[in-house]
């Protein structure tokens, strides 16, 4: 097939069992203008090299599995097309600011712990009773937090965030935005519990408002905006703390 167009993918490879450090491997892939980068990687896996290792599932931008650095930018590989780069080669690396397990697979343990620590669930004083029907919530109250529910935990914002890179304990954009999401939900009463974590130094105060998280977010969650709002709430809490015990003012 001498006439067939191809495109080159330069892919980061690292195997913890055999490699002292990472290397790049080059693959020539048939060029199809309808293909996303993930399609090209799947083609390599299926036909050329079954050892290439990466995560993927829905290939429609909602499961959050396939985040990668594509030419140095954090992207969902299922949502970025070869035609955006052709005829130039595409460099594919694991998301930065995370330890690498193998090839394009990053270690998510840290995020999972951070997520749990901000208590991302409805907290209420009353007993769970479904017989009284749904909690009423107006469209305006829904709109208050809806944007922050859209996070797919794809980790692109952690790769874009310079603070995550320098301070590994920083809770990070997605976890903070989700904490803020529950704080803003009219059904929730867990603000005080959540703010204890979110007011720690490596939490909202760690953010230097570079705003890159919101730029790379594929779902327009605007974590930077959420963190700024959370900072304002945290500052209020801080000053309230001088005049009354925490929570008494709610």
């Amino acid at each position: 097939m001498p006439d067939e167009k191809t495109i080159t993918l330069e892919i980061f490879r690292y195997h913890p069992e055999s490699d002292a450090g990472p290397r790049f491997q080059s693959y020539d892939v048939p060029y199809n203008e309808d293909w996303v980068v993930l399609d090209a990687i799947n083609w390599i896996k299926d036909t050329v090299d079954g050892t290439l290792t990466y995560r993927w599932s829905c290939r429609m931008g909602v499961c959050g599995s396939c985040g990668m650095m594509i030419n140095d930018e954090p992207k969902l590989s299922c949502a970025v097309f070869l035609k955006e780069y052709y005829p130039n080669p595409i460099k594919v690396e694991p998301l930065v600011n995370f330890p690498v397990e193998r090839d394009l697979v990053i270690d998510m343990d840290g995020f999972m712990e951070k997520l749990q620590s901000i208590k991302p669930y409805i907290i209420r004083d009353d007993v769970n009773d479904t017989s009284q029907g749904e909690y009423k919530q107006s469209p305006a109250e829904l709109a208050h937090y809806k944007q922050y529910t859209m996070c797919i935990n794809c980790m692109l914002c952690y790769s874009a965030c310079p603070v995550v890179g320098s301070e590994p304990d920083f809770l990070g954009p997605a976890a903070l935005a989700l904490g803020h999401r529950y704080n803003k939900d009219s059904r929730d009463q867990g603000f005080d519990q959540r703010m204890e974590k979110m007011m720690e130094h490596e939490a909202v105060w760690g953010c230097t408002f570079v705003g890159e998280c919101s730029v790379v977010c594929p779902k327009n969650v605007d974590p930077a905006g959420a963190i700024q709002q959370a900072k304002a709430s945290a500052a209020q809490e801080y000053f309230k703390g001088f005049i009354m015990p925490r929570g008494a003012g709610k």
């Binding site: 669930y121 479904t130 749904e134 109250e141 059904r187």
Partner: peptide, 17 residues
């Protein structure tokens, strides 16, 4: 309703239902 109590952001009517 249980999912609603667990935070699912269901679309709402003007009366909050």
């Amino acid at each position: 309703i249980q999912l609603e109590h667990w935070g699912c952001p269901w679309n709402r009517e003007a009366d909050g239902s």
